[in-house]
Design a protein around this nucleic acid. Structure first.
Length: 354
DNA sequence: AACTCGTGGGG
DNA sequence: TCCCCAAGAGT
């Protein structure tokens, strides 16, 4: 292969710094695809344990397609952005029904699948099938922004960056090129405190030559997150408590939770809980005991959870398809969001847990 | 085109 | 403690 000097430097650097990640030590497009979905907005070290557990339980496409969504979601529990899992599951079902369990190796068909966008299509096709598609993730954007001195990552400027990437890409191994660019971005050309002295491309980098690495790319101002107060109840009947499944279309869709809801302005936490429990469980609760407070932060708002313990009379709760009474030992069978696990922990430390 | 969608780590 | 940030996609 003939490379220009920048591409040659990147190639040499990657040869010396290649990481042996489990999802890169394979040619199975299913495994590479899974890893790319897990890696969306999530760093490698966070993904590793989830990826390993998932592959052990679901080693093939058919092993996913033959399970129910609930079973699969449990293996995503804690990783966040659960729509990724739901879309991946939907896509796998389509692969089974329409493609005989074989992942399409052309971009037009692959990118039509739910949860597969520009990045994922390029990553999987380049790594698993050696197709010459450069990826443009947040790492590559940052590297190119600094190298070329492009401050604002507008759609127009991203197209300009893509023109460069298409010239730079290793024609014989596009997957290695994409991996090298992303590794360079995440290990050296970091968002804050970049390790420019170790960067093989520093003499070609506009931002480095002008001592302006921290100015590229432009930072976007973040809004302060709104805050909500929420009441939740752990409603017991004999040795079981009430949980309900969140609507698939909503935030945290498909996961289970304790009943409860937002406290209205001027409303007390206890009154709010009574109102919500009447609406959701069809009962009027009386024995309400305060357990404590849990704070949690989501991507676009924060909450304070006022947690209560309630003991109900036998056979008084309404149970539809999306509601269940379970024992403490059955928690492991249902996917819960992080906030609910915090509540479990609080409850276990309370006087009501025996 | 903005906004929604989780969670954990770092400064 | 609080804010920023992270291998994006759907709407």
């Amino acid at each position: 292969m003939q490379f220009n000097s920048i591409t040659q430097k990147l190639h040499d650097w990657y040869g010396e710094n290649k990481r042996l990640l489990p999802f890169r030590d394979t040619e199975d497009p299913y495994k590479i695809w899974l890893s790319e979905v897990m890696l969306q907005q999530t760093q490698v070290n966070t993904v590793l344990p989830y990826y390993n557990k998932w592959i052990k339980r679901f080693p093939t496409i058919s092993s996913v397609a033959n399970e129910k969504l609930d079973t699969v979601l449990k293996y995503w529990e804690g990783l966040g952005y659960y729509k990724r899992c739901i879309n991946f599951y939907k896509a796998i079902r389509i692969i089974k029904d329409d493609f005989h369990c074989k992942i399409p190796n052309n971009r037009k068909n692959f990118i039509l699948l739910p949860g597969v966008g520009e990045y994922t299509a390029s990553a999987v096709l380049s790594i698993a099938f050696k197709k010459p598609y450069p990826v443009l993730d947040v790492n590559v954007k940052r590297v190119m922004s600094r190298m070329l001195g492009i401050k604002n990552l507008t759609r127009h400027n991203e197209k300009r960056i893509m023109v460069h990437l298409n010239k730079m890409i290793f024609k014989d191994n596009p997957g290695d090129f994409n991996q090298a660019m992303m590794d360079l971005g995440s290990l050296l050309c970091k968002s804050s405190n970049p390790l420019c002295s170790k960067c093989p491309l520093r003499t070609n980098c506009y931002a480095y030559r002008n001592n302006k690495s921290d100015k590229y790319p432009n930072k976007i101002k973040t809004k302060t997150l709104p805050h909500y107060d929420i009441s939740i109840g752990i409603i017991w009947r004999e040795n079981k408590f009430y949980i309900q499944k969140r609507n698939l279309k909503s935030m945290l869709g498909g996961l289970w939770e304790f009943p409860g809801g937002k406290i209205k302005p001027g409303e007390s936490a206890k009154v709010a809980l009574k109102r919500e429990i009447r609406e959701e469980c069809g009962v009027s609760i009386k024995n309400i005991n305060k357990i404590g407070i849990v704070k949690h932060s989501y991507s676009h708002f924060k909450i304070t959870l006022y947690c209560f313990y309630c003991r109900e009379k036998k056979d008084s709760l309404e149970l539809n398809n999306n509601a269940k009474m379970i024992t403490i030992n059955e928690i492991k069978n249902f996917p819960f969001p992080k906030a609910n696990h915090k509540i479990f922990e609080l409850f276990k430390q309370s006087q009501f847990y025996v």
